[in-house]
Amino acid sequence: MWWSNLFKNLSPASFFNFSFLPKYGSYFWKGIAYTLLLAVVSVLLAIIPALLLAMMRLSKNKVVKGLSGAYIAVFRSTPLLVQLSIIYFGLFGAVSIPRITVLGFVDISRFIPGVVALALNSSAYVAEIFRGGILAVDIGQTEASRSLGLNAWSTMRLVVLPQAIKNVLPALANEIITMVKESSICSMLGMVELMFAAKTVASTTYISLGPYVVAAVIYFCINYPASKGIEAIERRMRRGDKQ
């Protein structure tokens, strides 16, 4: 490769020692795919439970409200690392999943526990996003549709939710970005995502900093354009309001 002569004779501890790239570059590609898969799948899985939790949180029934409040409180006030470990060792210590490799690099016996833990965690956060989105819809909309004779469920489904989606979508996209970052914690439990790739390369090649620098650059190149894009879309969506 043309870059293999670019940084020669650098010490293993140098910031710019990227001599591992020609040989171990594929690790990083797989890591990127795994990270993105983990983040997107877990947020998509979280949407339905989160919507349910948000509705429960807004209901009039004290017990239903309390249940959802307790779930959200528990998942928001314990560290993700603890949740992941509990689900990995506790829940999936009892339920065993066969070691099947999907798509060539995803071992589902490790992927499923990770995705379940991330989805449970992010459903608590997404529920709060949904609740905020629903509450942000003007109360007059509900009053008007109720006066027109729609029942509570139809009001929610036909009037409030379609308007709430506009508030919710950018926040949901931001949640995916957060998940891209948070999923790095999964590397501590052996899921082969980007952080794990960096750790593996660092420990096989004895190059202590280069792999982490590469991983940092990749994470930044995923997150920064994505968050700027979301900001632009958010601005674009808000323009529709001012008519």
Binding site: K181, E182, I185, M188, M195, Y212, V213, A216, F220
Partner: peptide
């Protein structure tokens, strides 16, 4: 701010942990 907010904390811990003593 963009660099720090765009990368995971675990990665920052590793980078600082190995880079700072150098």
């Amino acid at each position: 701010t963009e660099l720090i907010r765009g990368t995971p904390m675990l990665l920052q811990l590793y980078l600082f942990y190995f880079a700072l003593p150098q």
